[in-house]
Design a protein around this nucleic acid. Sequence first.
DNA 1: CGCTGTCATGATAGCGCTACCATTTGTTTT
DNA 2: AAAACAAATGGTAGCGCTATCATGACAGCG
Lengths: 359, 359
Amino acid sequence: MSKDSPNADSRAKNVTTPALPNNARQRRSSDQVTLSQVAQAAGVSPITASRALNYPDKVSDSARRSVLQAVENLGYVPNLVAGSLASARSRLIAVIVPSLINSVFVEVIKGLQETLEAEGYQILLGNTDYDLDREYQLVRTFLGWSCSALVTAGLRHNSACHTLLANWDHPIMEVMELGQGMDLNVGLDHVAAGRCMATHLIDQGYRHIVYVGARLAQDYRASMRFDGHKAVLKEKGIDAPLLELDTLGSLQAGAEGLAQVLAQYPHTQAIHFANDDLAVGALLAAQRQGLNVPEDIAIAGFNGLPLGQHVTPQLTTILSPREEMGRLAAKELIRRLGGKNVYRRQHDVGFTLQIGGST
Amino acid sequence: MSKDSPNADSRAKNVTTPALPNNARQRRSSDQVTLSQVAQAAGVSPITASRALNYPDKVSDSARRSVLQAVENLGYVPNLVAGSLASARSRLIAVIVPSLINSVFVEVIKGLQETLEAEGYQILLGNTDYDLDREYQLVRTFLGWSCSALVTAGLRHNSACHTLLANWDHPIMEVMELGQGMDLNVGLDHVAAGRCMATHLIDQGYRHIVYVGARLAQDYRASMRFDGHKAVLKEKGIDAPLLELDTLGSLQAGAEGLAQVLAQYPHTQAIHFANDDLAVGALLAAQRQGLNVPEDIAIAGFNGLPLGQHVTPQLTTILSPREEMGRLAAKELIRRLGGKNVYRRQHDVGFTLQIGGST
DNA sequence: CGCTGTCATGATAGCGCTACCATTTGTTTT
DNA sequence: AAAACAAATGGTAGCGCTATCATGACAGCG
């Protein structure tokens, strides 16, 4: 709007040394209410106003009241960027996930978010699309925001990312899978989950079992489950064929997976899908084709999505506590950020075999 | 780690005036590589280093090369907080949604995210849990981060929030519903969507139609659809009963909704559900009870989730372009942030009636 | 009555970066 | 050849806040 007449100075005595500080530099105005203005209105110093807002019990009642009143009157909105720069703390938590399509990650985010937001932290969200180089870029950016902590899905990172994180002195939380991480870790044992389901299928009497996954190079946790699955079958002397789909996991992909399995392995008795989306897609497709589940073909999934519990027959699956994982990760981070000791760096959230009518 | 011997100064001549600037103030060290160090290593001034990174074509090739080399060698990570404070720009986009459980919002976020991240923007995510006061708090926080723009779901805000946003001079994007917003708006007409489905149901010959929604005071867009639905039925002289569930929309809630409708309105021929989760839950529950869909009871939903397209019979629903909505919103924001004119502030993404076998 | 300790407050000096202007150098114009 | 201009670079001064230290006021203590 109106920038107060800049001639006020130019009319002043001409100075020979141009470096003198009395030339009126134009600066972005930003006409925003600042803490100093609040302090002035409240009749205290800026630093007291700052304390009144950030450490309310470090100032007297009267000072606190008049500052809060001034904040109200002036409509002051704290500049968190300036505050973060000055204090080198930001109350931002970086959250990096490989996908937002897969509802699994969204549920983890949900758990994180509800717990962190209650403590006044904000989530800075990044999506790698299963690309570790992209992850590195995101980490770099997020470190630049001096995040208070970083949450990332998985234990695998590229070497640049690893170096960057190793030298970072804030909490790092790796979620989803269990293992030796960089710092904190909350997850479950995917190999064991694969073993668990394979064991169940064998117990049910199935011998011709195909594992179907989608993009296993990316979704390496699904391939860890396959490892567990394969190990069990091998112990029993059973062959463990793998069918890898090139599309991302979805109901549609599950239907295609079923078709391919039936074409390539006609004797198949059971299909162990890498996740529930695929499994339900296959189950519904099987029914559309007039196949009986589990008599003609048994189907198992992974995750325990609500969807699988509502189809008939109910889907046999492994329930992973996703929101719980997010909540626990958030709690551990908060504990750490509060300066508390961590008793355990690794937390196994476990999983539950949920036997439905589909196997 | 090692803070260079602080006695260097204390050994110096004792000064009588303690306010002299040569007393060695301890300051947080933060031992991080700064742009000045990069500049020094590259043999240029800090400001040139800054330009080399932010406006590469404003510096000479040689300067740019040596700066980039120094960045690489020193492992420099730009401090975005400092940069944002100095420039009053942040490349952060605040995104506020009412829920993360409802996959609809997640898909919008997905669309926003993929488009914004490609342009170098980061998403700051907030969840209101359908609470407008919470929305106000989040907006306040996000303004404090000097976000480049703000995206929020819906056109309704409390008055404090409205005031805050009205005085904010950055783009504001309201998504999901169409209407007179504060600034930019991308959405669809929910009343029209409700009309559309009601018309379809009547065309199919149904006369006893119940609308079932969950928490309509919160999910007011669902109640706008009911308004459209009711208007159509009223025009035909048909009664339009409403059943409101107290739980959030889910497959489980849909099953309960079906039970309640059958109990309260035994003559019901068709149920118009507020969303697909409810509708599919009801559809699957009906089948478990041996009811035929649509002969015994017709079922319709809203959203066009993949799920509804994979059940048998296929769910009649209204397809809303959710990711598309996010992408379009992001594109419009980017256009605006790039200083381009906006031709239209309102964008109708429309909807599609998808007729399945369930009606 | 001085000494020490706590409490509330303030003065000062940055946090690391970029906007603003000024300067230098090289290139074009008349 | 002087003037006019553009391109590249640098000096300075903040952005708005908070960490650090200093100070004054007042209580408790021997």
